[in-house]
Structures are given as C-alpha cells and as structure tokens.
Design a protein around this nucleic acid. Structure first.
Ligand SMILES: [Mn+2]
Ligand SMILES: [Mn+2]
Ligand SMILES: [Zn+2]
Ligand SMILES: [Zn+2]
Lengths: 145, 145
DNA sequence: AACATAGTTTAGAATTATTCTAAATCAAAT
DNA sequence: ATTTGATTTAGAATAATTCTAAACTATGTT
C-alpha cells in the first residue's frame, strides 16, 4: 500500500494534535511505512523504506518522526538486548518473541487481561505503568509468520 | 565484604572451568563486586567499584570478565530501554522493576513456576528458552528496599 | 500581501556504550 | 627453561542515537 488509509490518517492527526505537534508529510510517510509492514523495523530500515517513497527525507528526520509517533502514543519502541531499537505500531497489549536464528521479532497476542494481571506480582509499594514481556528462542520450521 | 565466600569461590571456579575458562584474580574480583551489592550495576559502575579494590584493572578487562561470567551462566545481562547494560547475579527466576524517577532497577520475586507458565501463551511453533519480564513505573515513598 | 513566530527538516558533528586490535603478561604443560 | 595458549591492557574503532545550527514551512497577525 502506498498511502495512509483515511482512518489511520485521522488517528495520526488527532494523536499529533493532542500532543501539540503538526501533521507533516514526513510523519505521515513514516507512519505509513510502519503500518504497511509490521515487522518491527529498526530506524535504519524505516529510513530505507521511507526514502524509497520520499527520496529527500533524512535519517535525522526519520528519528524525529519516530520520536513524535512514540510521544503521541501511536507507536511503541521495542528494545531487545543491545540491538537497535525497533518500532511497533501494534497498540493492543501483546508480548514479543525474538528468534535467535533469524533475529526477527514477532508479536505474540496474549489472553485478555493477562498483562494487567502480571503487575499483581509487584509488592504494594511498586506501581507500574508499563509491562514488557519478551521471549527468546526459535521458531519451528514451517510457519514463518 | 572484601572477598569471595568459599561457596561462591567454588561456584565460580566450577562454572568457569565447565566453560573452559580460567579462574583469575580479576574475574574473582568482578564477581565479588557483583555479589557484594546487588543493585544491577552497569559496566562502568562495576569498573569503579572493582578499581577501588584492584587499582590496575582496566575497563576492557571488566567487560571481558563480565562477558566470561555471563557466558558461564553466573550472571545475567539486564537491558532496559537503551540504557547501558546492567549485570545481575540473581540466578533464581525473577522479574525486574525499573523506577522512572531514580533509574534504579529492582529484582521482583515471582511465584514458583510463573516464568515457566508464561511461555504457554506462545503458539505451538514457537519454542522459548528465555523469558524476560520488566515493569516500569515508580516506587512509593517509604521503602527504598 | 508582508511580516512575525514557532515548529520542522536537514546535513553533519558529537556522544557514548561497547567491541576490536595488538602487544604485554601470565599460567599451565611439556 | 621453553612453548603454548589464555588473559589483561591501553587505546583505537564502531555504530546507534542525539545534538547543533541553519534552512525551510506553516500558521497567525497586522
Ligand atoms: Mn537478534
Ligand atoms: Mn532509567
Ligand atoms: Zn510488537
Ligand atoms: Zn535481577
């Protein structure tokens, strides 16, 4: 897909607006790149993909746009070990699976309410506003999804 | 504590030996520093602490020793966001809590078997050999643990 | 329309945690 | 004693990200 669906365009404008930021062609394009192929790309990969559609964009702008998207809540950063940060536009609660063989990162849907239940292991004086669950291992041959 | 307990010294030698690596004064000292104050120090903090007891040690050696300890399974790396890697000698299954205010990282004990149960959310073609659970938030005043 | 203002984009420099390199040191084995 | 291979060390190199400062763009005001 080459462009942002009307629904996503609206969500983007709303979210940016709500965070006091402008909607720009670069931000739209970066967001579109993230929605288009949801394989947790690094900034570098986002740069390559975006540049192919908007050849004048710079790496600095890609970082700026990604930061804007994270700040306004449309995208989450995913950090695994010391590897470059990856970006995930999946807003529903989910875990991540990191395949040691391919290096790829997959979304893992979790049962309704599980993420919220996990914070119950915290002692009373801890209050968590985010929970991250990451698995590492390998994917059996056959299904690559 | 200034030196390694006999128990820990034995565990260290065994683990290094099993991984085909030698027991050295530097490795003993770094391990002792990690056991001594279990607050998930960064390599830099380990360097500072170790240097105060063994002034000739170098940063490169600290990284080398930490890597040896990780390789032989006595220490785990803890990565949180893009911050410097931290080192944790707690071998029992546990989660981590990262306080946004102080930046400190705490161990959170989890119910027996919970970490193992978590992998049940994975589809059949995924096989995980490690599970990481990280909370982020803040610690109520009163207990600093 | 002209202007002022503030946000954004951009190229390139700076930062920084970590890894690499190559030489010196050390410790076991012969 | 000599050889061998592992370890330590200082410093250089790497690489993801952030910073800087100038150009550009959009928006609101006279
Ligand atoms: Mn990987
Ligand atoms: Mn922090
Ligand atoms: Zn994801
Ligand atoms: Zn820990």
């Amino acid at each position: 897909m080459k462009t942002l669906k009307q629904m996503d365009r609206g969500a983007l404008s709303d979210a940016l607006d709500h965070a006091g930021q402008r909607t720009t062609p670069q931000r739209e394009m970066v967001f579109s790149v993230l929605l288009d192929e949801r394989n947790h790309p690094t900034a570098d990969e986002v740069y390559t993909r975006t540049k192919s559609r908007m050849p004048t964009i710079s790496m600095a702008t890609v970082y700026n746009c990604l930061e804007a998207l994270v700040t306004c809540g449309l995208v989450k950063q995913v950090n695994i070990e010391r590897e470059p940060t990856r970006y995930c536009p999946n807003l529903s609660p989910h875990a991540h699976f990191h395949c040691r063989e391919t290096g790829r990162v997959y979304d893992v849907p979790v049962p309704e309410g599980m993420m919220k239940d996990l914070v119950k292991v915290l002692p009373g004086n801890y209050s968590a506003d985010s929970v991250e669950l990451v698995f590492r291992g390998h994917l059996e041959k056959g299904k690559t999804k």
